[in-house]
Design a protein around this nucleic acid. Structure first.
Length: 343
DNA sequence: TCATGGCTCTACTACATACG
DNA sequence: CGTATGTAGTAGAGCCATGA
């Protein structure tokens, strides 16, 4: 007698609330289910909640008791829990509940893989990127110098110091030059580049979300997207990160790199050195070198796995290394200054 | 084959100086 | 005075060419 009725849990595809229903076959289940969920009976069908497998009359009696099912209307499909992921991502309003649920699951989770998934989920759910000041989000500032009062100010500084490091390397290169005349020209060039860089505020705007659109590399909320390795148009893995979101993301962001497409040390600096062997710094197109060394024109923000450390083998554009015939720049000499033959 | 040194990046710390 | 800027040194991690 009891064996005739199969107890199942049933829900509609757009609600998480489920109901216990017992039925002797699919036909009866559909009838009861549609009434319960207030759905039209015509065209209704049921499938497994877990993976979307259609539940037929033959299949129905073999189901374990209390199997989770989804009741669908005509034309509706259910691809299993994947649908829930979609809802999960769009459900800002359920965040608190989700955080609680994820924490609950995590507390007695043993599998490292599932732990990783849950902690990553929590990391993204507990996003506090909308907070900006130290008072609002003290945790974010743990370990950050007290002089920084806002996240943006710190991120700006962070970017500046990375780029200042590139300048420092240029200065390092100067020390290796033996010929005093060449070194003197190189120092003039690097001084000029330093000046340009200072004027541009060390391009700290790249990491600063409060900057205007073309200047920042992130969204207004602080999301950065990997620009793909130097030899790729886009990042296939779709890496993204919001260092403004929490302390952990801020720390992880430090593993992201500003990668010189045309490499600084292997290519750009040697090209500048080469150019100055027999040319004055004023004949060299320093604007071009500035852009290669310090701007997003030659820098790609990449996730560490998209950071290829091997030789990039990209060369400087030989047409851009010198100022055109070295006469357009020297405005003050334009009335018949001594013209030096190139080579 | 393996160790090595040089290169690619980065963070963190301390200290000195300049500015409003 | 706090903030901003600049310099110098430490460290780690991975890649790569070289030479024993």
């Amino acid at each position: 007698m009891f064996g005739l009725f199969k107890p199942v849990k049933i829900r509609s595809c757009n609600e998480s609330r489920k109901y216990g229903v017992a039925a002797k076959d699919v036909k009866e289940l559909l009838k009861k289910g549609c009434k319960l969920l207030q759905l039209p009976l015509a065209g209704a069908h049921v499938c497994l909640y877990a993976d979307g497998t259609k539940v037929t009359e033959e299949f129905f009696p073999t189901l374990p008791d209390n199997t989770d099912l989804v009741l669908l209307c005509r034309g509706q499909t259910w691809s299993g829990v994947v649908c829930d992921i979609g809802q999960l991502l769009s459900a800002d309003r359920h965040t608190e509940g989700l955080v609680e649920a994820a924490k609950g699951l995590l507390s007695d989770e043993q599998s490292p893989k599932r732990r990783k998934i849950l902690t990553d989920l929590l990391l993204n759910l507990e996003d506090r990127s909308e907070l900006e000041s130290r008072e609002e989000d003290e945790d974010w500032f743990k370990g950050v110098d007290v002089r920084f009062k806002t996240k943006s100010a710190y991120m700006k500084f962070n970017c500046e110091s990375r780029i200042r490091g590139y300048m420092k390397e240029l200065d390092e290169a100067a020390k290796t030059i033996q010929k005093t005349k060449v070194r003197a020209e190189f120092l003039k060039a690097s001084k000029c580049l330093a000046e340009m860089l200072k004027t541009a505020r060390y391009n700290g705007c790249y990491f600063n979300r409060t900057e205007k659109e073309p200047d920042r590399l992130c969204t207004q909320e602080g999301w950065f997207t990997c620009q793909g390795s130097f030899d790729q148009e886009v990042c296939q893995s779709l890496h993204s990160i919001n260092p403004y979101g929490c302390r952990e993301s801020r720390t992880i962001f430090s593993t992201w790199n500003l990668d010189h497409r045309i490499e600084k040390k292997r290519t750009v600096i040697p090209a500048l050195l080469e150019a100055l062997q027999n040319h004055k710094s004023t004949d060299v197109n320093l604007n071009y070198f500035y852009h290669l060394l310090f701007t997003r024109e030659n820098l790609k923000l990449v996730h560490i796995v998209c950071h290829k450390k091997g030789a990039h083998s990209l060369l400087c554009d030989t047409k851009k290394i010198f100022t055109r015939a070295s006469n357009t720049v020297k405005g003050k000499q334009k009335a018949g200054g001594k013209r030096r033959r190139l080579m």
